[in-house]
C-alpha cells in the first residue's frame, strides 16, 4: 500500500480508543468505516471494503479484526498493534471495574435474580444476531447443512470446538468452492 501521508500512531490510538469506549453491541465495523474513510480520509473505500469480509470470515471478533486490518494498512504491524490495543484499553479497565463491583454486590438480596434478567436480555440480542447470520445461509442447501451440523456438534452434542473446526472448516469451504465466483478483478 503506498500511502500519500503517514498517519501518526497517536492519531490511530486516539481514534480507536474512542470507538472502543463507546462500543456497545455490534455495528462497530460501520463505525470504523465512518471514522477512517469518511471523516479522516485515511484510506479509500476500495481499500477498506475487503477488510469487512476478512474481519467477518477470520476467527475472532469482527470489530477487533477490522481494527487490525485498518491499522495494518495504515502503519504495518505497529499500526495493527496500536489499533487493537487502543480499542481494548478502555473496555478492559471498565469491565474489570464492573467485575470488581459485581463481587461486592453479590450479597444484596435480589441482585443475582437481576443478573439473570440482564443475561437473558443479552442472550435475546445474541439470538437476533444469530437469526441475521442464518438468513443468508437458508438459500443454499449445503450452507444450511453446515450451519445445522456445526450447531448440533458444539451446542447439543458438546463436541470440542477445535476438532469440529478442523473437520467442518475445510469441508465447508470445499463444498462452497464450485459455487464460488471471482468478482471483477481489481
Amino acid at each position: 500500500m503506498d500511502q500519500t501521508r503517514r498517519v501518526p500512531l497517536s492519531e490511530i490510538y486516539k481514534t480507536f480508543f474512542v470507538i472502543g469506549l463507546f462500543s456497545f453491541g455490534g455495528g462497530l465495523v460501520s463505525w470504523i468505516y465512518r471514522d477512517t474513510v469518511d471523516v479522516r480520509k485515511w484510506m479509500s473505500r476500495e481499500d477498506f471494503l475487503p477488510g469487512v469480509a476478512l474481519a467477518q470470515v477470520m476467527p475472532g471478533v469482527s470489530s477487533t479484526n477490522c481494527a487490525i486490518y485498518v491499522g495494518q494498512i495504515l502503519r504495518g504491524w505497529l499500526g495493527a498493534l496500536t489499533a487493537i490495543t487502543a480499542m481494548l484499553s478502555a473496555p478492559f479497565v471498565i469491565s474489570l471495574a464492573a467485575a470488581w463491583a459485581y463481587k461486592s454486590l453479590l450479597h444484596i438480596p435480589g441482585f443475582q435474580e437481576t443478573m439473570v434478567g440482564v443475561a437473558a436480555a443479552a442472550i435475546g440480542m445474541l439470538l437476533r444476531t444469530g437469526v441475521e447470520a442464518a438468513r443468508p445461509q437458508l438459500r443454499d442447501i449445503s450452507a444450511m447443512a453446515i450451519m445445522v451440523a456445526s450447531f448440533l456438534a458444539v451446542g447439543v452434542f458438546r463436541f470440542p470446538l477445535v476438532p469440529v473446526i478442523c473437520v467442518m472448516g475445510p469441508l465447508s469451504v470445499a463444498l462452497a468452492w464450485p459455487k464460488a465466483k471471482a468478482e471483477v478483478e481489481a
Binding site: 444476531t129 444469530g130 447470520a133 443454499d140 453446515i146 450451519m147 445445522v148 450447531f151 472448516g169 469451504v173
Partner: peptide, 12 residues
Amino acid sequence: RGLNPLGAGLLF
C-alpha cells in the same frame, strides 16, 4: 461462503 455458515451455527 464456506466459513460464514460455520460461524452462524456456532453462534447458535
